[in-house]
């Protein structure tokens, strides 16, 4: 896959959708493309987070460790962005992500991510928007859950 294709891919991710093509190219060029074989782990719950990942191809499972073993909480596929929480707010990884087939990712290091954010204010606005919408989503879910419990 060439740089231009990666740029197309990044454009499909909401967080980056509104960035200029040259910025996307910079992002693609400066991030590492890593291939994981089936069952290889992108990162583990509890580890220190140093990078976020964009799934370029393949799929991965998000697993949360509980007392009784791992529970699968989500499946990731092409264009999904994962691991951003740990690099945004310096908490340990909240889940383990494991490739469920051969998976190609773009690895954006924390350093790179923050530098981009600092360099391009546009991106921070996009991140705020994304986070706000996620917060809204979570609040909605909470409301629904409370309503069901009543």
């Amino acid at each position: 896959m060439s740089l231009n294709e990666e740029v197309e891919l990044l454009r499909n991710i909401p967080l980056f959708a509104k960035l200029e093509p040259s910025k996307l190219k910079l992002l693609a060029f400066t991030s590492e493309r890593i291939t994981y074989e089936t069952d290889q782990v992108l990162f583990r719950q509890g580890d220190v987070g140093d990078a976020a990942y964009i799934i370029v191809d393949g799929s991965a499972k998000v697993l949360v460790e509980t007392g009784e073993g791992e529970i699968e909480v989500a499946t990731l596929g092409r264009n999904d962005f994962v691991g951003e929480i740990a690099i945004l707010c310096d908490v340990p990884r909240t889940a383990t992500v494991r490739a469920s087939s051969q998976t190609v990712t773009l690895r954006i290091t924390k350093d790179l991510f923050f530098r981009l954010v600092a360099e391009f204010p546009q991106m921070s606005v996009e991140i705020m928007r994304e986070l706000a919408s996620r917060l809204e989503q979570t609040t909605q879910q909470l409301r629904e859950a409370l309503a069901q419990n009543k």
């Binding site: 040259s22 190219k25 910079l26 530098r115 360099e119």
Partner: peptide, 20 residues
């Protein structure tokens, strides 16, 4: 051309130049 496209907007001396 690609380098100019990607890096032209970065301030001179930015560490990306050296790294990438």
């Amino acid at each position: 051309e690609t380098m100019i496209e990607i890096f032209a907007d970065l301030p001179p001396g930015h560490e990306f130049f050296e790294q990438y």
